[in-house]
């Protein structure tokens, strides 16, 4: 009986957006009198950080500070349609809708600023902190707040924009399966290092080393959150979780967190990750969805590492200590002459 260490690898891809498309999202943007911008959506933040990501995309397109952006979501009386938060779609779909809406609002903003400064709007640029400046003319500028006030009270203009993103629905050919299911694909490769206790069948994940390609990291801190949290969930799926421990037998289903097993704070591995960016042609600033994918590659990487460690090949999730012990017994039996 021993504690054996092993290493396993897995590489995966993951589609962004609802399979086969047909899943629109919309955004409405308007400036307040004082040059803040309200983005109205009906999209849902499950904790993935939608409000923060959409703030950054809005600020980038309008050329204003993120602090000047307010995200108003999700009230179906006021917010325009969003298909929903799933399929790693919100950064891509809602982000694109916001780019369209913010581009329209920015045009009005610069038109008004141009009139106030008596220059053509093409000669203006935003400085990202709240001023609109004349290119190449230091000191000639107007604040976004003054431009917004002028738009409201002098020019009678609404600084606003409408945006929608739709990947048109693909209808599969049911003879061949030909179809256009995705908008883009994100990628991951994970290496798992595990230790298997051959006496108890217990598997400890020591380290998860990963590389993720996600198009563009709109917010690297939130990417990191998805990586660490998703890797944990992948490890949890690999070794612990099920509502039916003896599937397809329905007996022994857990009804609380004491019976439904997940790794706790004492069970977490060391994480190491790098991010690659290959911007997609259709994502906002090239972004792809990362939310779901992070849970996928750790599962087979851990399964392969268990085999590497002790020769137990387990094709049945979750890989419980019982299954490890049974697989070790079977391997020992098979090795007998």
């Amino acid at each position: 009986m021993a504690k054996l260490r092993g290493r396993g690898i897995a590489a995966v891809n993951y589609p962004t957006g609802m399979n086969l498309g047909g899943d629109p999202s919309q955004a409405l943007i308007h400036a307040t009198t004082t040059g803040n911008f309200v983005v109205t959506l009906s999209s849902v933040d499950l904790g993935q950080g939608l409000r923060t990501i959409m703030t950054q995309i809005t600020a980038e397109v309008l050329g204003i500070a993120p602090e000047a952006v307010m995200i108003d979501t999700a009230d179906t009386d006021t917010g325009p349609h969003c298909m929903g938060t799933f399929a790693s779609r919100t950064t891509h779909r809602v982000g694109n809708a916001i780019i369209m809406a913010a581009t329209e609002a920015r045009k009005v903003l610069l038109d008004v600023a141009g009139e106030e400064l008596e220059v053509a709007p093409e000669d203006l640029e935003t400085d990202g902190t709240g001023r609109i400046v004349v290119k190449g003319v230091p000191g000639k500028s107007i604040s976004v707040q003054d431009a917004a006030l002028a738009a409201h009270f002098k020019h009678g203009r609404t600084i606003s924009g409408r945006g929608i993103y739709l990947k048109p629905r693909s209808y599969p050919d049911f003879e061949t399966g030909a179809m256009d299911p995705d908008s883009c694909q994100a990628h991951a490769c994970t290496i798992a290092e595990v230790e298997v206790d051959t006496e108890t069948g217990d598997v400890r994940v020591l380290k998860l080393i990963s590389a993720y390609e996600i198009g563009r990291a709109i917010n690297p801190m939130m990417v990191e959150q998805q990586i660490v949290g998703g890797s944990w969930m992948g490890m949890s799926h690999a070794l612990y979780e099920t509502t039916e421990p003896y599937y397809p037998n329905r007996a022994h289903g857990p009804v609380d967190f004491l019976g439904y097993l997940m790794p706790g704070p004492a069970d977490i591995p060391e994480y190491d990750a790098v991010i690659l960016e290959r911007p997609s042609t259709n994502g906002p600033f090239g972004a792809k969805g990362i939310g779901e994918m992070t849970a996928n590659s750790p599962i087979p990487a851990i399964a392969n590492a268990i085999f590497d460690a002790c020769g137990a090949r387990i094709d049945d999730l979750p890989i419980t200590p019982e299954k490890v012990l049974r697989a070790l017994d079977a391997a020992a039996l098979a090795a007998q002459p």
Partner: peptide
Amino acid sequence: MARILEDVFTAERAGSFQAIGRALPRIDA
């Protein structure tokens, strides 16, 4: 925080941004 490998797909990822790519704190934190 996970590092972005800047020497892969360098030409494709070129661009200058002000708000994109920032580790802006979560707004609802």
